[in-house]
Design a protein around this nucleic acid. Structure first.
Length: 578
RNA sequence: GCCCCCAUAGUUUAAUGGAUAAAACGUAAGAUUGCGGAUCUUAAAAGUGCAGGUUCGAUUCCUGCUGGGGGCACCA
């Protein structure tokens, strides 16, 4: 009996005793704000509107009508009205057994949250630029994309993760030109620098030099033309530098534990939208300007005018996205296609989706722009062209140093190998949790000194909670929890609240997934860990009476499993000791 | 100039239109002869930028204003 099923049974019963209720009315059963108020509640405001009665009266009426019939529903002990709310109390021992069994047995197979079964989901994220290393903003993108993929997988969607590498254009030529002029044949190997940093140096160098010598801009422009005409020397340089950058990216991806099923390269696809635009031109969906450029008028959607092809027929940014959207459709035929892209591009995606709609692609309804806000540093927005960034690798390195210090202060005799292993895992936890606990649409102010902590609202706090539970579980004989357990002994407030939290887990997964918002999961895990720590300080497990001990062991084992699974969804590993 | 987003304790953030606005950091005091103190307890601390409106009910929806961020390329 899952939460879903309990709610369904309750809904059916309410509809039976209130036959005057519209057949299609939806009842929402929620967790009450406080544990003493019950295990589920039904706010009666909407019912009140539908039946033209005060919600208080409805709640009272339901209490009366249902009380005699609750024996018809397993698990429900009593219903009680409180103002405009109807609160439901479940039979704790039976309910606990069900909640814990569900968690301990099912693990990865949660029928209740398989609501994306049969659905094909495509997630595009990361989209690095080959002229600079990835910074904190990319990390937010990477973690968001990766976590959404995990959430969709857990809910049984068939997920494909794709990366679109931004490897062509004038900005790439700028770093190429700088390397050609001042690189002196150096390589990442000769300089012992990670490839993406090596290339990034020349991008910064170009932007320094161009201040004194604006003619460099034209040179870069000329280089782009040579590139487009297939000049073998330019192409070779481009390939070499791209390779360096991409090798660097791959090291970072490996470090942060994200991956992709498929890679697109802009250099392959940048012209693919041309055909579609020319077709649309023939149908009169867009028009040719006097100077020969192809343009579309979106004024009536309040989106202005947009150039689709330059006067010389070459493609622009949106040309490529029009082509890529079709390519994805043909290649993967997704039911849902998500673009994880920063909110700076909200306008771009509005325009893109509108154009595809005007071009009459019916699958445009399956496209979703998962927009997330910028990451700001104390001195403002990151500017890679001025070298003012918080590079992902550097932030991670700094944090690992801090983590090592923390670990050593607690375990001075630990082997250096184990210290770095733990430091890596704890750093990932701190960083990922920090970036994912914010609602995606919310901007993040990142202050390297203040933002990263290993206590309080943090990933390591959740990890530590897990470690504590493991430390208890290590001390017991496994047989102790194989027995038939009487959950009547679990009756203090914290035990009940922990059960309520565990019971809500599927709902949190659902909410995080359908709202594209892993922060719900992050906040839930914090609440669960906090509640456990409160419990831990007040009530002994190992030294409790045998029956109580057994029941508590099952409870804390369930808590540990949910913390582990929840953290893993956020890309965070747990440790047995820390 | 136009468009989009945001504004909640000292700070950083929570809160499907619903029950007493919730945490963390910081501050002050306290808890180790208790399963790990990266923990816990207690206290002080906001009535949600300002002015209106809709609603039985607004942090949440609408209008205006103020302040901050982003965008408005034939750059990607």
């Amino acid at each position: 009996m899952t939460g879903e099923k309990i709610k369904k049974n309750l809904t059916n019963l309410v509809k039976k005793v209130l036959p005057e209720l519209p057949v299609n009315s939806v009842l929402e059963w929620l967790p009450p704000p406080q544990s003493e108020m019950g295990d589920l509640c039904l706010p009666c405001f909407k019912l009140g509107q539908e039946l033209k009665q005060s919600p208080e009266k409805i709640a009272l009426k339901l209490e009366k009508l249902l009380s005699s019939k609750i024996s018809l529903i397993d698990l429900v002990d009593q219903v009680k009205s409180q103002g405009p709310y109807l609160n439901v109390f479940l039979n704790k021992p039976v309910w606990m057994e069900i909640v814990f069994q569900e968690i301990l047995k099912n693990k990865k197979e949660w029928k209740e949250i398989s609501f994306n079964k049969q659905k094909k989901v495509l997630i595009e994220y990361s989209a690095p630029n080959t002229n600079k290393p990835q910074h904190l903003g990319h990390l937010r993108n990477n973690f968001l994309g990766w976590t959404m993929a995990e959430l969709f997988s857990l809910t049984k969607a068939k997920v494909t993760k794709v990366n679109l590498v931004n490897d062509r254009g004038i900005h790439i030529c700028q770093s190429m030109l700088a390397y050609q002029k001042w690189g002196k044949g150096k390589t990442p190997e000769s300089e012992k620098i990670k490839g993406d940093y090596f290339v990034g140096q020349y991008y910064v160098l170009f932007n320094q030099k161009v201040k004194d010598d604006p003619a460099l801009l034209e040179e870069a422009q000329a280089m782009l033309q040579q590139w487009e005409q297939g000049d073998p020397e330019i192409i070779a340089l481009w390939q070499k530098m791209n390779q360096w950058a991409i090798e660097g990216f791959k090291k970072t991806y490996q470090k942060i534990g994200v991956n992709f099923d498929y890679w697109y390269f802009e250099s392959d696809i940048y012209e693919w939208g041309k055909k579609t635009i020319n077709k649309a031109l023939k149908k009169g969906l867009c028009y040719k300007r006097e100077d020969g450029a192809v343009e579309i008028d979106l004024e009536k959607y309040n989106l202005g005018k947009k150039v689709l092809l330059r006067p010389d027929g070459t493609s622009v940014y949106i040309t490529q996205d029009i082509g890529l959207a079709q390519l994805k459709q043909e290649q993967f035929n997704p039911d849902l296609s998500i673009y994880v892209v920063c909110s700076e591009q909200d306008y771009h995606f509005k325009v893109l989706f509108k154009i595809l709609e005007i071009f009459d692609f019916n699958w445009v309804k399956n496209l979703y722009h998962l927009s997330y806000n910028l990451v700001f540093l104390p001195h403002g927005k990151m500017k890679s062209r001025e070298g003012q960034t918080a590079d992902a690798d550097e932030v991670i390195q700094e944090m690992e140093k801090m983590a090592k210090g923390e670990i050593l202060s607690r375990n001075p005799n630990l082997s250096p190998l184990e210290v770095s292993r733990r430091a890596e895992i704890i750093t990932q936890a701190a960083l990922k949790f920090f970036l994912l606990k914010f609602t995606p649409g919310q901007k993040i102010n990142f202050d390297p000194q203040a933002s990263i902590s290993f206590d309080g609202d943090s990933g390591p706090y959740c990890q530590y909670t897990y470690v504590r539970i493991q430390s208890i579980l290590k001390k017991i004989d496994k047989k102790e929890i194989d027995k038939k357990i009487d959950y009547q002994v679990l009756k203090n407030k914290l035990e009940i609240e922990l059960t309520q939290l565990l019971f809500n887990y599927p709902e949190i997964i659902k909410k995080s997934t359908i709202n594209y918002n892993p922060s719900y999961l992050a906040h839930y895990l914090l609440a669960l860990a906090q509640k456990f720590n409160e419990f831990y300080h007040q009530f002994p497990v190992l030294k409790a009476e045998p029956k109580l001990k057994e029941a508590r062991l099952v409870l804390i084992q369930s808590v540990a499993l949910i913390i582990k699974q929840g953290l893993e969804l956020l890309g965070i590993q747990v440790l047995e000791e820390m």
